[in-house]
Design a binder for these strands. Sequence first.
DNA 1: CTAAAACCTGACGCTAACGTCAGAGGCAAG
DNA 2: CTTGCCTCTGACGTTAGCGTCAGGTTTTAG
Lengths: 125, 125
Amino acid sequence: MTVTEAAAERLVRIGEVARGAGVSVRAVRYYEQQGLLVAERSPSGQRLYRQDAVPLVRFFQQMFAAGLTSRRITDLLPCWDSGHTDAGQRAMLRAERDRIQTKIDDMQAALDRLDEVIAITDTHP
Amino acid sequence: MTVTEAAAERLVRIGEVARGAGVSVRAVRYYEQQGLLVAERSPSGQRLYRQDAVPLVRFFQQMFAAGLTSRRITDLLPCWDSGHTDAGQRAMLRAERDRIQTKIDDMQAALDRLDEVIAITDTHP
DNA sequence: CTAAAACCTGACGCTAACGTCAGAGGCAAG
DNA sequence: CTTGCCTCTGACGTTAGCGTCAGGTTTTAG
């Protein structure tokens, strides 16, 4: 059921993508510049995106929030697109995973320390 | 038992603090510039720190890792030093706490997505 | 038809926590 | 004394993900 049907996909302009994903237009252009996103062009030169660009941009945001760089995301995009991965990509996936886990642990430790202080300052004003 | 005894505290120079805390000398100077750290000076102008500067710098690192800025840390330092806090500081503590918690959740979500992909690419090479 | 809204391409600005010189003084050892 | 390591004060460089003009074209609403 892969939509190989070239059934005239509805294309949207950059503003709609940006609003849909909750980011700025500038951000979407930046993603294209970084090779994260590809867009067709209208005869007049305006960017045209398929609707799946919206969840894709949301995904980028999620990865950015996790501390991945746009470079890393481009390197790992094939893992999503094609499902195919080579050894290097699998290693990168694991490395990023471990890095994120470590960062979560660090932040949890910091959170615990803050909570200690909050508890103290609340009971001891 | 507060060590009000001016019992000639052993003072250390910046290199020892940096090595002890696992940061660069430049970082320690930066913390002073940002008002996080205060140092006495030797007659010749070299910075002299008390040994508790080492755990303090480690603490800064932990807060930085959690996304606090040096500005925020200076604002909240009195909560540690004096144990005394006003309403504004308590609000800031909670705000930072909530921000960190949100970020942890975001990163956990990203981690879960990465783990999905890892699972797929491992079973489906 | 016309005005507003949206889009385009540069290109400089911004922030935060340092890195990295450069040039000069300070300090214990041999 | 001098060798070598540590420290000092500036001060500019870096990185990443955008923000923010500037100046011009295009699309849309009425």
